[in-house]
Design a protein around this nucleic acid. Structure first.
Length: 461
RNA sequence: GCCCCGUUCGUCUAGCGGCCUAGGACAGUGGGUUUUCAGCCCAUUAAUCGUCGGUUCGAAUCCGACACGGGGCACCA
């Protein structure tokens, strides 16, 4: 079988949600492992929540992460268009076919009636479901009303009896009773399909072999299965992956956690590290490795190994992972990354000297500025008040010392001893006076890079 | 309320009936290296495997009930 997977984001948010990045990774790795295709389809059927810039941002984030797609709204492909808003005729055609076959019906109920109905059902402690009023309408009568231009939707006619079963690669067989499945709206009054019709039609037309999506979709899958059966189409393979969680175990949300991929980029996370961390969500490298590439994941990946338990997204472990990637990066690459991140080009020879001093201290690219910023500009403030007496002492010691590691260290120690203060204190004072901070890269090494003139100037009060 | 999914250290996980007095990683703690902070090295805390019952010579692993957590029940995806 030829493997074709897809992610189907909705352009309703600021950017790609990290949870969608997770499903994208799984879809991508699975498809590529078997030399299949990975597709992006934009599900922009909700006009009320549509966000103009969203699609571009989603594509840009996927690009940043390093998850390339074979077909999509920007790249095109044999099943174009890849935006649902451009495929309306397809859904309409299929919806009409379903009505004709008696598997769907026109519904003319108003919003008000539906709301009232639900309120009544709630009062009676009944599950909120469409009561089937329009199902009993004479088909000719329905056609007449449609022709007359009456506002209407198309509802799926779900059998009252029997069960609908599907096999999930991750979870095994899942069974639902048809009588508990609602007569879902599949085509809205504005002519746009709902998700349920949209996915089924497009997944079929685009020859998607494996539908890999979040577990939030499990309960609507029987509706999709019914649709496939009514249309006489082959049912794709399903794999419902767990949802990423907030620390309080609720579904990962922007209220409780940073969720936009661009946020991670802005914080100085590396795409490789983000992907690596996501890979460890509900899946584990067979050799127990924590650090591994997407290629390596591909080598060992199997959908069946996906854990069914929903993992908590732990940003601390992501930071650790990111630090591991920074530490393993060679100088040139790191310098390039930092330049791109800070939008500043700094002298190469200076950067080459600085990098070894700060690399082990950085967990994100953003930390370069707080760690090494003092190399490029004088501190604007101090983390604690300066002890002017000690600063003057340090300056004096430096004025005539040998400009090398031993010379500087000797000068400080001698000055401290003469004055009767611990050398440690003088070193700290020197650090604060020159860098503005109490912590940072090794002092003497840093001072050498800064240069004697610059230091004496910074020590001038 | 109804339906569905799930339940191993604080977190991510290994585990597929005996190798488990449950292994690794992150975080935490202590120590070493050190003029700071990191990094690195060493050590260490932490899970009666949700609970109860069953199957079995033997269960974290199989079965059942209950509890708890989550998801879904829209002309949102």
């Amino acid at each position: 079988m030829f493997i074709r997977t897809r992610i189907a984001p909705s352009p309703t948010g600021q950017d790609l949600h990290i949870g969608n990045a997770y499903t994208a990774l799984v879809n991508y790795v699975f498809a590529k492992k078997y030399r299949g295709k990975f597709i992006i389809r934009i599900e922009d059927t909700d006009r009320t929540r549509f966000v103009e810039e969203s699609e571009q941002r989603i594509l840009a984030s996927l690009d940043w992460l390093g998850i390339p797609h074979d077909e999509g709204p920007d790249t095109g492909g044999p099943f174009a268009p890849y935006r649902q808003s451009e495929r309306l005729d397809q859904y309409k055609r299929v919806a009409e076919e379903l009505v004709k076959k008696g598997h769907a019906y026109y519904c003319f109920c108003t919003q008000q009636r539906l709301e009232q109905m639900r309120k009544d059902q709630e009062a009676r402690h009944e599950p909120p479901m469409y009561d089937g009023l329009c199902k009993t309408l004479d088909p000719h009568e329905s056609q007449e009303r449609v022709k007359a231009g009456l506002s209407h939707v198309v509802r799926l006619k779900v059998p009252d009896e029997g069960t609908t079963l599907f096999a999930d690669i991750v979870r095994g067989e899942i069974l639902f009773e048809n009588k508990l499945i609602d007569d879902q709206v599949i085509l809205k009054s504005d002519g746009y399909p709902t998700y349920h019709l949209g996915v089924v039609v497009d997944d079929h037309l685009m020859e998607i072999s494996h539908v890999i999506r979040g577990e939030e979709w499990i309960s609507s899958t029987p509706k999709h299965i019914l649709l496939y059966q009514f249309l006489g189409w082959d049912i794709p393979n399903y794999a419902h992956v767990p949802l990423l969680r907030n620390p309080d175990k609720s579904k990962l949300s922007k209220r409780k956690n940073p969720v936009w991929v661009s946020w991670y980029k802005e914080q100085g996370f590396l795409p490789e590290a983000v992907l690596n961390y996501l890979a460890t969500m509900a899946w584990a490298h067979p050799e127990g490795k924590d650090i591994f590439s997407v290629d390596e994941m591909m080598k060992h990946f199997d959908l069946k190994d996906i854990q069914t338990t929903a993992p908590v997204f732990d940003i601390e472990k992501l930071r650790w992972t990111n630090g591991e990637y920074i530490r393993k990066m060679d100088d040139a690459k790191l310098i390039e990354q930092i330049s791109a991140f800070t939008h500043q080009i700094r002298p190469m020879n200076q950067m080459r000297q600085i990098i070894p001093l700060v690399r082990d201290r950085m967990k994100t690219l953003a930390e370069f500025s707080s760690l090494a910023g003092f190399f490029f500009e004088r501190p604007k403030g101090y983390e604690r008040p300066l002890k002017n007496e000690l600063v003057a002492l340090a300056k004096k010691a430096f004025e005539s010392c040998d400009w090398n590691h031993e010379g500087m260290e000797k000068a400080i120690r001698e000055a401290a001893e003469k004055k009767g203060v611990p050398a440690k204190d003088l070193f700290m004072e020197l650090r604060v006076a020159v860098t503005g901070k109490t912590v940072g890269p090794p002092l003497l090494e840093s001072l050498k890079i800064l240069g004697k003139e610059e230091i004496l100037e910074r020590l001038s009060l």
